[in-house]
């Protein structure tokens, strides 16, 4: 299992969050297999913590992309639509998904709590 970056916050849905930037974890990416399609929320969309706001398809399956926090989408990563494999190759950097202006204080895990979750 690849290392869990210590500076990020995590959800139980295997997403990470840093200063409003959202992605999926390496654990999620490797569990899904090769990702072939990503549907992201539109810029301007309001998202709600714990509620699906997009989809991630691997060759084998479809998974909901669940918003990690309440907020409004202010930017999406244009690269991942064209190259969804970035989520497998580089989930914590080039494979980021979208950025939200977070409202309130989301309920998130720190790296050690997330590490315990994926054991």
């Amino acid at each position: 299992m690849s290392a869990i970056p210590p500076h990020l916050s995590y959800t139980r849905d295997h997403e990470w969050l840093l200063d409003g930037v959202v992605g999926i974890t390496a654990f999620a990416a490797s569990s899904l297999g090769d990702i072939v399609y990503v549907q992201l929320p539109d810029v301007g969309a309001a998202v709600t913590a714990g509620v699906p706001c997009g989809e991630i398809e691997s060759t084998k399956s479809v998974s909901d992309l669940v918003a990690p926090a309440d907020g409004v989408v202010v930017e999406v990563n244009p690269l991942v639509a064209a190259e969804p494999g970035l989520l497998n190759e580089d989930p914590y950097e080039r494979g980021w998904l979208f950025r939200i202006s977070v409202s309130g204080t989301p309920d998130l895990l720190d790296a050690s709590a997330y590490a315990a979750l994926v054991g």
């Binding site: 490797s30 297999g33 090769d34 072939v36 060759t59 084998k60 494999g85």
Partner: peptide, 22 residues
């Protein structure tokens, strides 16, 4: 390999990635 339970056996689902294998 990543394994999957297949008819009661642990079988390889993928090694590096199923697209490259395909």
């Amino acid at each position: 390999a990543t394994f999957t339970d297949f008819a009661g056996r642990r079988m390889p689902l993928r090694y590096q990635g199923e697209l490259a294998e395909h």
